[in-house]
Design a protein around this nucleic acid. Sequence first.
DNA 1: TATGAATGAGCGTTCATTCAT
DNA 2: GATGAATGAACGCTCATTCAT
Lengths: 213, 213, 213, 213
Amino acid sequence: MHPINSEIRKAPDDDLRRSILVTSRELLVREGYSSLSMRKIARSIGYSATSIYLHFKSKDQLVHALITEGVSVLMKRLRPVFDDVKLNPKELVRRICHEYVKFGMNNPGYYEIMYVLHPETLSRYPEDNYRDARSLIDRLSSVFEKGIESGVVIPSDPRVTANVLWSQMHGVVSLIIAGRFDRALDREVLIQDAVDRAVRSCFVSPEPSLDSI
Amino acid sequence: MHPINSEIRKAPDDDLRRSILVTSRELLVREGYSSLSMRKIARSIGYSATSIYLHFKSKDQLVHALITEGVSVLMKRLRPVFDDVKLNPKELVRRICHEYVKFGMNNPGYYEIMYVLHPETLSRYPEDNYRDARSLIDRLSSVFEKGIESGVVIPSDPRVTANVLWSQMHGVVSLIIAGRFDRALDREVLIQDAVDRAVRSCFVSPEPSLDSI
Amino acid sequence: MHPINSEIRKAPDDDLRRSILVTSRELLVREGYSSLSMRKIARSIGYSATSIYLHFKSKDQLVHALITEGVSVLMKRLRPVFDDVKLNPKELVRRICHEYVKFGMNNPGYYEIMYVLHPETLSRYPEDNYRDARSLIDRLSSVFEKGIESGVVIPSDPRVTANVLWSQMHGVVSLIIAGRFDRALDREVLIQDAVDRAVRSCFVSPEPSLDSI
Amino acid sequence: MHPINSEIRKAPDDDLRRSILVTSRELLVREGYSSLSMRKIARSIGYSATSIYLHFKSKDQLVHALITEGVSVLMKRLRPVFDDVKLNPKELVRRICHEYVKFGMNNPGYYEIMYVLHPETLSRYPEDNYRDARSLIDRLSSVFEKGIESGVVIPSDPRVTANVLWSQMHGVVSLIIAGRFDRALDREVLIQDAVDRAVRSCFVSPEPSLDSI
DNA sequence: TATGAATGAGCGTTCATTCAT
DNA sequence: GATGAATGAACGCTCATTCAT
């Protein structure tokens, strides 16, 4: 599990590659997957369509690269949180939630292609590349597992808990990205509320009984 | 010599219309929106592409019809629940959640085109037709509003609460439909857990301990 | 050579037939031949496309009917002039010119399909049906022939003269119908001038020198 | 890594472009505008339909290119005549007429798309591109204007005279191209006669009788 | 008399992709 | 490393036409 060694690449070549990926994400957000085309990408970056094939064997592979990149960016954001030994489970989960949502907000292009796009479109994506992403759920599960042991997490199948937590975050992120919420509502308030509820629903509430003593 | 009188249509005609809508939803689920084409729909039902145009003026209109139908089916499921005076708020919300999820499970085609599709694709869909769908959120909000007054719902902006609840359900439904969860997990367990948490996070927990003292 | 006995037709049937022809001409003028379609015609008159086929075997035949009708209308306008024994040659030609132009102005649909449309489109039109139209040129030729004999027409091949006269009138009519002239110019002035020149170029000018002697 | 530099194009590329334009004109003459299709053009030149789009963004643009080319060819023929200071007005007008007709005879494709086509079809053609063509009428007008001042042209509104002259030439050209004249008539004779009449109808006849007395 | 249902052919256009340079 | 030329397949859609009713 080593991060991408992007600094060992040859620079000149990489510039265009980067442009393609960046532009693809922009187009993805702006116009949706159905109208993402090699031509449009090429036009957007001022290169010929053929040039894209110097860096990606096919449209499929380009999309796969986007996913791989997205996963890696997400990992880079979440791993330090998981690794932060100073955090208690509740804080850790809260931070994970916030980072996940922030990732979606900042990278709607990645998010869409990673999690929203119809899986059939992506079925050819080698499942293994999602291993990293799935490992996140595993780490979350084990956080809950330990939390249950130490009594701070409400007992329940930790894998279920982790997946439901994920689904809750995915719910807000995807609806925000798709612009489905009433525009009158404040994004930040929605997010804060969603995270609060999610966390609260996992952890035992600080017992007022202590106060009453 | 009378001109066309199109409103006296009968069943035979509508059969094909139904086939088209049903098949569209199947294709939508199987292959995703980006590869949904008039030709494929036609091929799937064993008709010529031209025939579709006898029932839908354009692909846009077909999609709009799907959305409208989907909304109406969803309404038919949820309205009785909202109107059931015998339900207390908590039961009502729980039932609403379950019905919503069930709708998604039973009608993934409708669900995808209603809630998952990139909005840019559907921007031409007359906003008004979503009014029904949005009214659902409003009804949910007022359930929470009254619940707060009567002390059973944890105080919070009811509209935010309603929207976050929706997002939580959307999260499970969309990830299940997309087949993103670990296949080892039991769907029903996931759903039950998600609904439980959602409901719990809205309503004050019955604290028998206090009462019993 | 008998005119169409349109009053012996059965009425009910004829109404629709008339509507089709009238509407076709309107569409022809408004949108041009390339976008004249059976469907549009049907839609315009509030009938089904199929109904048109009760009266015309094909689009070709409809067009042919339009031509035949157009020719017959033109004949009805010009024949009385040719037959008017009270007119001297010069007056006759002048009147013929004016009637021809008037026909074009009043029936741009007929005119376009009779004289402007690309002949390939019409190649299947039985040449014989143009016999009437061509007979007009013949009659004009013989007017010139006699005029030359009696010394009022400038000597020249009468058939050439007749055809060139026709082409001159066709020039104004077609450019007016196509809206090609500078809009600042007055139609009537253009027409008058064109006819004057045409007539003048055929007939010997009344020589003032004779009078002055 | 340089972006596209399209202005450094060379010949090889332009060959196909020329073929397309030439073939389009041929098809236009042979089958008329209503049946001119990208596919037919492509088939005629032995290329795929897609290839046409490498040179013309749309069918509209192709047609516009044809018009623009046609106008420019016509200009190239007429301008030298207008600019020829050695010509007296009568000779100039006669030469203009002959060149105009010759242009039509040699370029029926251009002529049809420039002057015969139903204007509705071309309404999207930027009016400005016709400026050149319209300037021709203006130059003709001023020839007549000066001619009237110097007494060689029969007094009349010069703009009307110019337009009517144009319509006379258009009459012959369009009927010849459409093959409407009796095939027994000699084209050249018709043209000569038409031009003679046109010129004669504008200029005062040299009255030798007066001089000879 | 009039229609609805249906279709094959064709339209203009865009797509991902290949290949020689 | 980058491009222009080229294409077959597919797209949404309209066309004239047929046929059973």
